[in-house]
Computed example of a mutant assay.
Amino acid sequence: MGIGKRIREAREGCGLTQKQLAKKIGVTSSAIANYENEISHPKETVLYALLDALQVDANFLFQDCVALEKKVVLSQEDNDFLQKFHALDRHGREVVNAVLLLEYQRSKEESTRHSSMPLNIPFQVSSQPASAGTGTYLGPDGFEEILVEPEQVAGADFGVPVRGDSMEPRFHNGDIILISMKQPVEVGDIALVTMDGCGYVKKIGQDELISLNKKYAPIPMTGDVRINGKVIGVLSSHD
């Protein structure tokens, strides 16, 4: 049984003819016939008037429109709201509909905004800084996790804090440089280098480590030199 047959059942239960029901809700008797024969369906405002005139709720009219396992049952709160809505005059219903539309749009926009926000992921950052100066001792390996947006650290294996100003203006004290261990490091690249136990973030020269800040002289590469990865980006402390 569809909504049309439910309308007919409720109308007959109220002892109303199609013409009498049409007069009650402000439509033509042919419109009622079309609803009952499911040639057309009542608009929202007419539907509310139908529920009111037939003294039934939405559950009654729509109980056959969905499969049993997908059936939507109105809560007592929903039914209370509908009863109050039906008791309003036309002006009251227009006000409620206007407020409802505004709140629906606001809620939908808020939901869309939250769903589009990127989820933060954990990212490992060394607890020991690398020097953008004359060298910082890198003690035993240790990392801590920070939460970042995935796009901020794409391609990076870990981060290292910068200490000093020798790589200004590109990197500043307190920045976290992003290190890739997968990308090859060539002369002219900026890399994380350890030399005799001290860590540096420097531009790689032929046989020296070069600072971007001109007040610092190049550091000759001597002793135990290891290139730990290429600098591919930065989480700036100045953002």
Rank of each mutant, 00 (worst) to 15 (best):
S180C: 05
Q183S: 14
S180V: 04
A191M: 10
D175H: 03
Q152N: 13
K203L: 11
L192R: 09
P161A: 01
K182W: 10
V153C: 04
I190V: 08
K202Y: 06
R163D: 15
L209M: 06
K202E: 08
L178K: 06
E168P: 00
D207G: 12
I146C: 02
M195P: 02
G205Q: 06
Q183N: 14
I204R: 08
K182C: 12
H172L: 12
F171A: 03
P184A: 09
E186P: 10
Q152V: 13
M181D: 14
I146G: 00
A191T: 11
H172A: 12
G188Q: 08
Y200R: 05
V201H: 00
K202L: 07
L147S: 14
V148D: 08
V160K: 03
V187N: 13
E186A: 15
K202Q: 09
V187E: 15
D196N: 11
A156H: 04
K203N: 11
T194S: 07
G188I: 05
N173C: 04
V193S: 05
N173R: 02
H172E: 11
N173D: 10
V162E: 06
Q152I: 11
E145R: 11
V201R: 00
V201T: 02
S166N: 03
M181T: 15
L147P: 08
G164N: 04
E208V: 06
G205I: 07
Q206S: 15
I146S: 00
G197R: 01
E149V: 13
